[in-house]
Computed example of a mutant assay.
Amino acid sequence: MKATVYYAPGDVRVENVPDPTIQQPTDAIVRITHACVCGSDLWFYRGEEEWQPGWRTGHEWMGIVEEVGSDVRTLKKGDRVLAPFAFSDGSCEFCHKGIQTSCVHGGFWEGSTNDGGQAQAIRSPLADGTLVVIPKAVENDDDLLTAILPLTDVMSTGHHAAISAGVRTGSTVAVIGDGAVGLCGVLAAKRLGAERIIILGRHESRLEIARRVGATDVVSSRGEEAIAAVQEMTQGGAESVLECVGSESAMATAIGIARPGGAIGYVGVPHGSGHSFNLGRLFMNNITLRGGAAPARTYIPELLTDTVAGKLDASAVLDLTVDLDSVPRGYAAMDSREAIKVMVRP
C-alpha cells in the first residue's frame, strides 16, 4: 500500500510500504477514506521536532473497517469509523476519568512505532477503546463526512480549550490563533453560549472565516499592543481565554488578556526553544491555567451527535483537498500559509 513517510525537514514522500496486518487480537485494520495534515505536523516538517527518516505521518483519519482481531467486540467489517488522534484501551484509570491521551496502554498515531493516517490503510491498536462508529444514515453523505473529519483532532481540541477555559452562556471569550484549532475554538465557544468572542490573528482570509462561524471582534495586532487592545475593549480582560498556538508569545498574550478570576484553556502544542510565563500575574489575579492534549475520545460522541444533527460544522477549516500522492504538496501549502488545513482523500 501507499503511505506518507518523513525523511528530513521539508521532505515527506509517499511510498509503497507493507500492508498492515492484525498483530494483536484487539487490533482492527481500517481502509482510510479521509485524512488530514495537521498544523502540529509542521513542527517536524520544519525541523523543529526531532524526527527520524522512515517515520510514518498523519494522526487525523477516518475509514472503513476491513478486518478485526478475535477480541474486538464493538466493531465489524464494513463499519465506517473515525479515530481520535490518540488510541486508548478505554479501561484504564485515566480512560475512566476521560483523559484517554494519558492511557497507560495507549499512544499516538504516526512516528517511530505506529502507523500514520496519511496512508491507504492503518492498523488500529485497541480498536474497541479507540474507534467511533459513524451512523449508517450519514455514511454516504460526503459533505457530512467532511464536517465530521475535524472531530478527530482540531474540533475536539478547540472544544477542549473552551471547556478548560470555563466558557459558559453569556461569557466573553478571547481566542488566540487563527489556525484550524483557533477557528474551531471560536465554533466551540459559540456552541457553549459565549456572547462575545474575540479572535486574535493576522490573516484576513482566516479572520473572515472566524467572523462567519461566530467571532464578534477581531484583534490583528500582536504582543503588548494586542494585550492593550483586548484589555481596553473588555474593560479588564476576557473571562475565558483559549490559547491555540503553543508558542511562548501566545501564552504571554493569553496571560496578559485574562480577566482576574478568569481561566485560560491552553491546547496549542508547545514548541520552540523554551517556555516561561508570568506566574506572578496568574497568582495575583487568581487566573486558572488548564488544558493540554485534548481527550478527543471523550468529546467525539457529543460533537458527532451535533454534527450529524446539523448543529455543528467545522468543515470550513478544510480549505484544500489533495489525493494521497499529493500529500507533500499539502504540507508545502500549509507551511507557506496557502492553506489552513489540508484534507487528504486516498
Results as ranks from 00 to 15, higher is better:
Thr298Arg: 14
Thr169Asn: 08
Ile257Phe: 11
Ala296Ile: 04
Tyr299His: 03
Gly214Pro: 00
Arg259Met: 04
Glu243His: 07
Arg297Met: 01
Gly262Leu: 00
Thr169Arg: 08
Gly261Leu: 08
Val267Gly: 01
Ile227Leu: 03
Gly201Ser: 06
Ala293Gly: 12
Gly272Ile: 10
Glu225Pro: 10
Gly158Glu: 00
Ala294Phe: 11
Pro295Thr: 00
Val167Ser: 05
Ala263Asn: 04
Gly280Met: 12
Gly265Val: 06
Val219Met: 02
Gly201Lys: 05
Ala215Pro: 03
Leu200Phe: 10
Arg206Thr: 04
Phe283Asp: 11
Arg191Pro: 01
Ala254Asn: 07
Gly170Trp: 02
Thr253Asp: 10
Gly177Ala: 11
Ala296Arg: 05
Ala293Glu: 12
Gly236Leu: 07
Ser249Thr: 15
Gly272Arg: 10
Gln231Thr: 13
Ile198Met: 06
Tyr299Ile: 04
Gly158Thr: 01
Val213Leu: 00
Ala174Asp: 07
Glu225Val: 14
Pro295Cys: 08
Val230Met: 02
Ser276Tyr: 13
Glu195Val: 13
Ala238Lys: 01
Thr298Met: 12
Thr216Cys: 05
Arg206Ser: 04
Asn278Tyr: 12
Arg290Cys: 13
Met284Val: 15
Gly280Trp: 14
Leu289Thr: 11
Gly261Ile: 04
Ile176Tyr: 09
Val219Arg: 02
Asn285Pro: 06
Ser249Arg: 14
Gly236Val: 06
Ile209Leu: 07
Ser221Glu: 11
Leu192Trp: 08
Pro270Arg: 11
Gly166His: 02
Gly214Glu: 00
Lys190Thr: 03
Ala252Gly: 14
Val181His: 07
His203Ile: 14
Arg290Asn: 14
Val175His: 01
Val267Asn: 04
Val245His: 05
Gly166Ser: 00
Ile199Gln: 10
Ser220Asp: 11
Ser220Phe: 11
Glu224Pro: 13
Glu208Thr: 15
Val241Ile: 10
His159Arg: 08
Ala180Arg: 06
Ile264Lys: 01
Glu195Lys: 14
Glu208Cys: 09
Ile227Cys: 05
Arg297Ala: 05
Arg212Asp: 09
Met284Gly: 15
Arg202Glu: 13
Ile264Met: 03
Glu248Trp: 14
Val219His: 00
Ile176Thr: 07
Gly291Phe: 11
Ile197Phe: 08
Val230Phe: 04
Gly201Trp: 09
Ala229Val: 12
Ser171His: 03
Ser276Thr: 14
Val245Ile: 12
Ser205Ile: 11
Ser171Asp: 03
Ser164Val: 09
Pro301Arg: 05
Ala250Ser: 13
Thr172Gln: 04
Ser164His: 07
Ile163Asp: 10
Ser247Met: 15
Ala180Phe: 09
Glu239Met: 12
Phe277Glu: 09
Leu183His: 06
Asp217His: 04
Ile199Asp: 03
Arg222Tyr: 14
Ala296Leu: 06
Asn285Met: 10
Thr157Leu: 05
Pro301Asp: 06
Asn286Ser: 12
Ala254Ile: 09
Arg196Tyr: 06
Pro260Lys: 00
Asn285Glu: 09
Gly214Gln: 02
Gly182Val: 09
Pro295Arg: 09
Val267Arg: 02
Gly256Ala: 07
Gly214Cys: 04
Ala161Gln: 02
Thr157Ala: 04
Val175Met: 04
